[in-house]
Amino acid sequence: MAETDVATQVANKWKRKRGSLIMALHEIQEIKGFVPWADAAILAEGMGVPLARIYEVLTFYNFFKLEAPGKAVVSVCTGTACYLKGNDKILAEFQKQLGIKEGETDAEGNFHLQSVRCVGCCGLAPVTVVNNKTYGRITTENVKGIIDEWKKNLSESKE
């Protein structure tokens, strides 16, 4: 699928449905990992929504990304339960191991580190989610293992 086809198809799918802007943006991000300017512009045209509105929405909601994140997005939960169980140490360990700060992506574009609001697995606190995989009850000692697991995943998916 050509780069721009995604936005056109998403626009066609949603334009006749009501209350669909956020759903359409989710779909673009699902496919591309973020919402590029060109796609937003095509979506604006295709759905008849001003670009200004699209960016008002994109920048309001934390979920949407305007730039390409790393291939593995490490989300350290900062909910209350995780806070009480020392998520700050987990986050610090990820920063140390990955050599990047919160909100940053490493030079290779492999890992993106972020803190996220409660992922709703409070019983397993502290929790970290990498892409769609949830890791519960983790300690600082587990961090390296998680990173290695994903390094392996990433190199395998390359081959």
């Binding site: 001003p50 670009l51 200004a52 509105r53 699209i54 008002e56 994109l58 309001f60």
Partner: peptide, 17 residues
Amino acid sequence: LSFLNRGIATRISGAGG
């Protein structure tokens, strides 16, 4: 004109920054 961001970071800007 549009709003950008939210909370204390909210600002006005040309459409989409």
